[in-house]
Amino acid sequence: MKRILLFGIILTAAAALAAQTPSAEEIIRQMEAKSSPETSEVEGRMVTNDRFGAKETSFISYAQGTDLSLIEFTSLEEEGQKILRSGDDLYVYFPDAGRTIRMQGAALRDSVMGSDFSYEDMTTGDRGILDDYTAELKGSESVDGRDCWIIGLTALGPNVPYYTQDIWVDKELLVSRQVYKYAVSGRLLKTMKIQEYLEMDGYLVPSRMIMEDKMKRNSSTEFHIERMKTNVSFSRTFFSHRELSR
């Protein structure tokens, strides 16, 4: 009788513990909801470090939801260049070319302004992570003293830049702390470490992160957000590719 009672207690405790640990999908959903304000305007800079030194690029970016974003570069060398993401489409505008170009195919793998970010890294579109990947809770690990879940993502189809990803999600804040991105072969392609978050209107937006393209030797790109505004109103045509040249 005692044994049956003990087994019942263990079973109940395990069930309670399982109920406290959200599923991988739930963690991803909460993380996404927490980091994407409805509209935003951000001023920031990218610092790319490689064997030849550091290169700084400043920009202003505008976003509406998860499917519309516009980055306008403000540093002297790139002044006036723009990158527009509208759903799955990516457009680039170069003032010197005087035309807007839709990036597609192999060009999407090109580096953005010589950084460790590729255009492909910016084309997740309006789909959430779970639209493209299956998620699996792989365990827990501490990253920079923060207790994190490790979520493994595996692509559902071929139309994603990385076949698998591992995301370390902060258990307390439900934000990602670190992401490893892999090729189909299992080769590590990129790592991203989020070092700081900016809290605004209940959202936690990554304000300082480092991306490393493992295909480049001694290269990393620091991404800094200097200033951020939420609840920004945009005109109906603000995110139109026809507006880029204006």
């Binding site: 790319t48 490689d50 030849f52 290169k55 690029t57 540093s75 060398e77 790139e78 260049q81 680039v92 170069f94 010197d96 070319a97 005087g98 035309r99 170009i101 060009a107 090109d110 580096s111 953005v112 302004m113 010589g114």
Partner: peptide, 16 residues
Amino acid sequence: LTFFTQTRGRGANGFS
């Protein structure tokens, strides 16, 4: 024709 290339400062530019 529109050309893409890297600039001296290792940025990018396009020109026609």
